[in-house]
Design a protein around this nucleic acid. Structure first.
Length: 545
RNA sequence: GCCCCGGUAGCUCAGUGGAUAGAGCAGCAGCCUUCUAAUCUGUCGCGCGUAGGUUCGACUCCUACCCGGGGCGCCA
C-alpha cells in the first residue's frame, strides 16, 4: 500500500534518477505537488533549469495519475493530480479502518516516561505539559502499531520524604485525613523547619535512612502519603481524559533495590571511580561527572535514572525510550544516556530520546515556584477553563493550547489564551467535527444512505479537502518519528479550515445525484479523520456543540 | 567561563535550502428567513535579533556578536 505522493515520487525518480523531493505545493495555483529537482540537477550539470525541467517532463509517464505537469518560475515542476485519481484515493482511504495510517515497518516496544508528578504535592501547570504531551505520543505510537509501555515515574522517594514523614509524626497528623493541598502545606512547613532547626534536620536525615531500610512505622506513613497522592493524580487524569492508570505507576521508589547493583556494575567495569569521596562517572563532553553514589553513601536521582534505563531495556525490552520531561533536564538526560551507553545498559540499537518541553512561566516571565506559591495548580487552570465552556470543550482548549506549539519553547502562562475557544483552537476542531455529524444526521434522516464513494470532485474546495485528507497517514507517521504533536495540530487545523470553506461553498444536502453522494462521502471521510486525529491528541470528538 | 534553548506582524506562534515569509488573536469593514456565525469574506500589519560567509537560491546551513531564559559534583 503506497500513498499517492510516494507513487508519484517513484515515477519521477525513475526519470531523474534522484529523489525528486516532492513537496505539497505552497500555493493552490502551483497545483498539488511541486518538485525542485530540475534546479538541483541543472546546477550539477551546468545547464539551464527550465531546459532540464522540460526534458524531465517529456520523459515522465504519469498520465494515469496527473494532469500534464507545468514548468514554472526558475524551473519548478508542478503536478496536479487528476480529480478521478484524487476521488479514488479518498474512496480507498474511507475503506481502510486506519484511514491511511499505516503500521510501522517494524513494531517496536516503546517506553514513554511521562507525567511524573511528585507525591504529596499538588499537580501544577508544569505537570500538565508532560502529561498531555506524553499521552498524545502514547496514542500516536500505539496507532502506528508499536507496543507502548507508559511509565509514570512519580516522585515518591528521596530526602524530602525524610522531613515530611518526620514532621507528620511529630505533629501526630492523620495522613489519610489530608488532601494534597494539606500535604503540600506540611511539606512547606517541614522545609522551613528543616532549615531553622538543626535537631529536626538531623531527625529528618535519620528518617530518610529509616525509610530506605524499610522501617515499618516510617513506611506506613509513606504509603499513606502515596495513597492520598494517587487518588488525587487519578482524579486529575480522569478529568483530563488521559490513558494513565495505576498499572503504569513506576515511581522512583521501585528502583531502590536496584541501586546498589547498578553501582556495583559500574564499579566492576571500571567506569565509575572515586573522586572527592563520591563515586563518579566521567564522560567526555560533560564538564561535570555524574555522581552515582554520594560521599555519604546515599544515591541521588542520577542513579535512579540509570536503574530505570537498565530496567526498561532488560526487563521491559524497550527498543525506544522516550522521556517527556522539561527542557532544564536536558543536560541530565544527555548524561544519563551517555553513561548508560558506556555501561551497556543502553545498547546501540535502542533509541533514547528526551522530549524536552519548555517551561511554563508566570505572567512576570519568571519560573513558577511551588515554594513561593506562585505556581498555578492544575485544578485552578481546569476550573478556569470550565468557566468558559463545557468540560469536554474546555479540556480541548487547554490541551490544544499546549500541543499546538513547538515543544522546546517556554511559554508564559496565560489562562485567557489557554481557554480560548475561537480561532486556531481545540474547540474549532471539535466544531468542525460536530458540523459534519449534524450534516450526516440530517442526511440519514432524509434517507440518503451511507455514502462511501467519492465519484465527482469538480469544485476546488472539494479538491483541496480531498487532497488534505489523503495526507493524514504521512502526518501521523511524521509525529511518530519526530515526536512533535504540533504537526498533527497544524494538519488538523488546515483540514478543519478546508472543511469550513467546503461547507460554505458546497451545499451537501441541497445537491443531488453523484454530487451529493460524493459530498456526503467527503463529509464522512473528514469527520472520521478529524475524530481519529482528535483522538490522537487526546481530545474528545463531539457530535454536537 | 562552558553548554543548551529561544529571538519571525501590536500580541501568541507556524514555517522540509526553493516561487511574492504565513496563521490565530487584537483592530477595521462585511455576511446569519440558505446543511450549526465556536464559522466565513475582505482589510491593516512583518522581510525574519545584528554583521559577515557558503549557495544558482538562506527565516532555514556556517562563523562571530547582541538580547532573553535555562543548565553545569554530592537537591530532584
Amino acid at each position: 500500500m503506497s500513498s499517492l505522493p510516494s507513487l508519484l515520487s517513484a515515477r519521477v525518480a525513475a526519470v531523474t534518477g534522484v529523489d525528486p523531493e516532492l513537496r505539497p505545493a505552497t500555493k493552490p495555483q502551483f497545483g498539488h505537488f511541486q518538485s525542485n529537482v530540475a534546479l538541483r540537477l541543472a546546477n550539477a550539470e551546468g545547464r539551464r533549469a527550465r531546459d532540464v525541467a522540460t526534458e524531465i517532463v517529456a520523459k515522465l509517464e504519469i498520465a494515469d495519475l496527473c494532469e500534464p505537469p507545468e514548468i514554472a518560475g526558475p524551473g519548478f515542476i508542478n503536478f496536479r493530480l487528476r480529480t478521478d485519481v484524487l476521488a479514488a484515493a479518498v474512496t480507498d482511504q474511507l475503506a481502510e479502518p486506519g484511514l491511511g495510517i499505516v503500521a510501522a515497518d517494524r513494531s517496536e516496544t516503546v517506553v514513554i516516561d511521562y507525567s511524573a508528578p511528585n507525591v504529596a504535592k499538588q499537580m501544577h501547570v508544569g505537570n500538565l505539559r508532560s502529561t498531555i504531551i506524553g499521552d498524545c505520543l502514547h496514542r500516536v505510537l500505539a496507532a502506528v502499531g508499536h507496543r507502548v509501555i507508559p511509565q509514570n515515574h512519580i516522585g515518591d522517594w528521596g530526602t524530602q520524604f525524610g522531613m515530611l514523614v518526620e514532621q507528620i509524626m511529630l505533629d501526630g497528623t492523620d495522613v489519610l485525613s489530608l488532601d494534597l493541598a494539606g500535604a503540600e502545606a506540611v511539606y512547606q512547613r517541614a522545609n522551613a523547619h528543616f532549615k531553622a532547626d538543626p535537631d529536626f534536620a538531623t531527625a529528618a536525615r535519620r528518617r530518610v535512612v529509616a525509610l530506605q531500610s524499610g522501617d515499618p512505622e516510617t513506611r506506613q506513613v509513606w504509603r499513606q502519603l502515596l495513597e492520598i497522592s494517587k487518588a488525587a493524580f487519578n482524579a486529575a487524569y480522569a478529568r483530563l481524559g488521559v490513558l494513565l492508570t495505576d498499572a503504569d505507576l513506576a515511581g522512583e521508589s521501585i528502583y531502590n533495590d536496584d541501586l546498589a547493583a547498578v553501582v556495583a556494575e559500574l564499579e566492576e567495569s571500571g567506569i565509575a571511580v572515586i573522586d572527592d569521596g563520591a563515586l563518579c562517572v566521567f564522560v567526555e563532553g560533560f564538564n561535570a561527572p555524574m555522581i552515582v553514589r554520594k560521599a555519604d553513601g546515599g544515591y541521588g536521582y542520577s542513579t535512579t535514572d540509570l536503574a530505570a534505563v537498565r530496567h526498561r531495556v532488560r526487563n521491559l525490552h524497550a527498543n525506544r525510550i522516550i522521556y517527556v520531561v522539561g527542557a532544564p533536564q536536558s543536560y541530565h538526560f544527555d548524561q544519563v544516556f551517555a553513561v548508560s551507553r558506556l555501561a551497556g545498559f543502553l545498547p546501540a540499537d535502542v533509541r533514547a530520546e528526551h522530549v524536552a518541553f519548555g517551561q511554563v512561566l508566570g505572567a512576570d516571565g519568571k519560573k513558577f515556584s511551588t515554594r513561593e506559591g506562585t505556581a498555578v495548580t492544575l485544578n485552578t487552570l481546569l476550573d478556569a477553563a470550565e468557566e468558559q465552556a463545557a468540560p469536554a470543550v474546555a479540556m480541548a482548549a487547554v490541551k490544544y493550547a499546549d500541543l499546538s506549539t513547538g515543544l522546546n519553547k517556554d511559554y508564559v502562562f496565560d489562562v485567557g489564551r489557554m481557554v480560548q475557544t475561537t480561532g486556531n483552537t481545540g474547540p474549532y476542531l471539535q466544531y468542525a467535527h460536530a458540523r459534519m455529524s449534524q450534516v450526516l444526521r440530517k442526511a440519514d434522516a432524509e434517507g440518503y444512505g451511507e455514502q462511501t464513494k467519492v465519484l465527482v470532485l469538480d469544485e476546488p474546495a472539494e479538491q483541496t479537502l480531498a487532497l488534505l485528507l489523503t495526507r493524514y497517514g504521512e502526518i501521523v507517521d511524521e509525529v511518530a518519528e519526530t515526536l512533535q504533536p504540533h504537526r498533527l495540530c497544524a494538519y488538523l487545523y488546515d483540514l478543519a479550515g478546508a472543511l469550513s470553506i467546503f461547507y460554505e461553498q458546497c451545499p451537501v444536502l441541497k445537491s443531488t445525484g453523484d454530487v451529493r453522494d460524493s459530498r456526503l462521502a467527503l463529509c464522512v471521510a473528514t469527520k472520521r479523520v478529524l475524530a481519529s486525529g482528535l483522538n490522537l491528541l487526546g481530545i474528545e470528538a463531539l457530535d454536537r456543540m
